[in-house]
Simulated assay, not measured.
Amino acid sequence: MNTIILDSNSNEWNNYLGNINKSFQDIYYTSGYYNLYEQNGDGKAKLFICKEGNNLAIYPFMLNEIIDYKLGGKYFDIESAYGYGGPLVNTDDKIFLNNFENEFLTYCNEENIIAEFIRFHPLIKNERIFNKNIEVLHNRFTVYLDLAKGLDRIWKEDIKSKNRNMIRKAEKSSLNVEINSEYNIFKDIYSKTMDKVKASEYYYFSEKYYREINRTKNYILLNIKKEDITISSAIFIKYGDYFHYHLAGSLQEYLKFAPNNLLIWEAVKLACESGAKYFHLGGGVNNSLDDKLFKFKNSFSNNIADFYIGKRIHNKEIYAYLISEWEKKNNMKSKILLQYRY
């Protein structure tokens, strides 16, 4: 078995992705996407590759060195970039898949990687490729649209009647829709929304982040305006068979005009025109079907997917030490796998 590890600036990264089944290829696996989050400070982007004959497996992740714990050597952890990820394979050959996982576990041991966190892809359903010493947990539900149905059927069959009424209300409120590239306006609205929901500092992306996504055709910025004021704005991503609802924000004082309902409906139109097969709206802020954000997205489609996460500890002794030190320092119990980072 041939094993290769690439950095995000490698010209070969996307060539390997291109040899995976087209229905599995998504933005979250590209070198450009991982490079974006490397520049955002999320770690060093890596692609782990295994080849054997015609069989191929790839696995992108962010590699981070663990600092400030006096470990007496270099230790690391890994996780999927923001969004979705996990391994992709072009075969169901059980022997190859077993060898691929063994090669990866050996790599983690040799490189002093102590823990691994994976956000699996809800539509690709890749949460069962890894099965050794890994805890796979259902995190929440996500919503998606089957765009093959076409716009008319989506309007009649998927979008709930109350939502259709809200969209009509928005249209009657003289709201205007525009595709734009003014990310400063989006950033302002998005930041206010993050303030409102008391989001962590991570979700306040930098100017550089917005400049980088503005350079690629995969990102679409859609605005809803009331007269000359942008009152709702969202970034969508189109890649291959997938159209994603990425980031969004709206002004609280204008929500009575239902701008977000109109915004998503206009995005549905764009998604249908784009040639994508699926529009993935994502999930809510937790795993409850009564979550407000989930219910809003669910009003556009009854198609629900399962989002899984994976947790794997490669060095239990060092991991236990890190968690113990964090808990002593913060006088509280840890709640997440990579808690010692925060």
Rank of each mutant, 00 (worst) to 15 (best):
M1E: 05
N2T: 08
I5K: 10
I5T: 15
W13A: 00
N15I: 12
Y16V: 05
F24C: 06
Q25R: 10
S31D: 02
G32V: 03
Y34I: 03
N35W: 08
L36R: 03
G43T: 13
I49C: 04
K51W: 06
L71F: 09
G86K: 02
G86N: 06
L88E: 08
E101F: 14
E101G: 11
L105E: 15
Y107D: 14
F120P: 03
I124T: 05
N131V: 14
H138N: 10
R140M: 11
D146H: 09
L147K: 04
G150N: 15
L151C: 06
K156M: 15
E157G: 14
K160W: 08
K169I: 02
A170Q: 01
L175R: 00
I179N: 10
S181T: 14
I185W: 05
K187C: 11
K187V: 05
Y190F: 14
K192N: 14
D195R: 08
D195T: 08
K196G: 11
F205K: 02
E212I: 13
I213L: 06
K217F: 04
I220W: 02
I220K: 03
A234K: 01
A234V: 09
I235L: 09
F236S: 01
G240A: 11
L247K: 08
A248C: 11
N261W: 02
I264H: 03
G275L: 10
A276C: 12
V285M: 15
V285E: 10
D290C: 05
K297R: 08
N298V: 15
S299T: 13
F300R: 06
F307C: 01
F307H: 01
Y308I: 04
K311P: 09
N331D: 09
K333I: 12
Y342F: 15
